[in-house]
């Protein structure tokens, strides 16, 4: 593992090591990402891209990091790359689809969940939520319960027949735990009924 680190950093001095519990991990600047990936795939035999994801660091700058996990078939070892997005307001990243076709769906998912645009991606659309969904659910400010919005619009008759739309899910009695330092009272399931439906709408504040 040390030799990979040496080889990689000799070739790309801008690549820094990153703290990791298990596999070797590196911070890569965005402008060198494609070169580094190509080098890893062709010369160091990390031929398989197993995962692309992102982390929202909330109020830290830079706010978003895109994380890549590579797997080497010959070495049977993983490698982690982390790339920070420069802009927190409209985050973007270069797409690695040209190197690994597997990245296509993974990057679409990252866009869907975090709103990170991938440059030169062949098909930058939402993948898990529907196309018109207005929010990015895995950003830290987005509540688990969701935000009121409209259903997928393709089916207007259905919407008219049922008057259903996306309503924030009830959280009473829901997953609760005390984060260290927080008062226990905030962890308890709240008794208030929050199960709003079309027939029992949420009262206006």
């Amino acid at each position: 593992m040390e030799e990979i680190k040496k080889q990689l950093q000799e070739r790309f001095p801008a690549v820094e090591s990153r703290d990791s519990v298990d596999w070797p991990a590196f911070n890569v600047p965005e402008e060198r990402l494609l070169e580094v990936c190509r080098y890893l795939r062709d010369d160091l035999d990390y031929a398989m891209l197993v995962d692309v994801t992102a982390v929202d660091w909330s109020d830290v700058i830079p706010r978003f990091s895109v994380i890549y996990h590579l797997f080497s078939v010959s070495r049977s070892a993983y490698l982690r790359l982390a790339v920070n997005c420069a802009d927190a307001g409209a985050p973007s990243m270069v797409s690695v689809c040209s190197i690994w076709p597997a990245a296509n769906w993974h990057e679409r998912e990252v866009y869907d969940m975090f709103g990170i645009q991938f440059k030169n991606h062949p098909d930058m659309r939402r993948i898990l939520m529907w196309d018109d969904y207005p929010y990015f659910p895995l950003r830290k400010e987005f509540p688990l319960a969701g935000i009121e919005t409209e259903l997928p619009p393709e089916d207007t008759e259905v919407r008219e027949a049922t008057d259903a739309h996306v309503i924030a899910a009830p959280m009473m009695g829901g997953p609760f735990h005390a984060t260290p330092g927080e008062p226990m009272s905030r962890a308890e399931p709240r008794a208030a009924d929050q199960s709003w439906t079309e027939k029992n709408p949420k009262p206006l504040d």
């Binding site: 659910p137 969701g146 259905v158 049922t162």
Partner: peptide
């Protein structure tokens, strides 16, 4: 019936809201 353990942004809380 109610959304069950999936109290989240993506899950409809009970199919009786539409049928």
């Amino acid at each position: 019936s109610t959304g069950g353990m999936y109290r989240s942004y993506a899950t409809m809380q009970g199919v009786d809201r539409i049928v």
